[in-house]
Amino acid sequence: MKKSSLPVRTAAVFGLLVLAFGAMLALNVRTGSLSIAPEQVFRILLHGGSDGTPAGNVIWKIRLPRLLAAAVLGGALSVSGFLLQAFFRNPIAGPYVLGISSGAKMLVGVTMVFVLRHFAGMPFWAVMAASFAGSLLVTGFVLLFARRVRSMSVLLVIGIMVGSICTAVTDFFITFADEANVANLHSWSMGSFSAVSWQNLRIVSAVILVSLWGAFLLSKPISAYQLGENYARSMGVNVKAFRVALIALSSLLSASVTALSGPISFVGVAVPHMSKLLFGTAKPAVIIPGSFLLGGVFCMGCDLIARTAFSPSELAISTVTAVFGAPVVIALMLGRQRGRDHG
């Protein structure tokens, strides 16, 4: 029966994902404008830090932080998307699609413009805080309109509109910012894993891992919530607290990503959907860790393409994720439409 084959499939897919994750790490760390032999990569990694050689510097100061950022942030975005989908009970929800990333970007941008006018720099925790506040702000806004919307397309439209408003506000403030800061802001707001420092990566990773654990602890109520708010409540879910936790965690996750690398498109929608197809289930206890791994693989792959496709020029990461992610969104909408026609 189907029941007995499920754990086998789950284990097999997890095994595959771990392998793919490892392969992506290996591939990414040795690919780039400076080609480094595998055994040398290995030696440098074992060294535990840059050994002073150019290859060592490239690996430890450029490739590794960027690579790990792609892995962790990709995972975080995916889980954030999954949590939003659970919240809205709508597979089209995601931090980028709903304009939440744009909201984070707006608040970071606005804060930066003001802070940089008076101070030399903006500490990373402040960027994080602004990003989180922006995420919450937009989520609240979307909720205001979309609380009772079950239709995917309406939610999508609301998200796009809210996102556009945020982008407009960001642009408005950038117009009045100093030239030097604009360049900084602009490259950040395009979305990139390139400017990642070890220290910031550590902060963000810590936040993400804690949130991930929190999300995993929510997997039981998330699955109950799939049957609807009232059924969930009747089974003992504290719906109010649960909803607050969902929003807080998904905002923390996506805000961390936006703070470190700017908005990245479509990962949050595409990866959870692909994981569900891979695992053949939507059980949160499987999909949360599964999406994290797959999100890491997906973003490392996209970053590899962003770095190498038109080397030496680099693509923005969102350019690549959109190419792979947007079709998934379209497929989702069409699939749902077809399902409705049949039902």
Binding site: S219, K220, S223, A224, L227, Y231, M235, G236, V237, A285
Partner: peptide, 11 residues
Amino acid sequence: MGRYPYTGRFG
């Protein structure tokens, strides 16, 4: 899912 009130933290 009806076993919700009776199962542990991870259901």
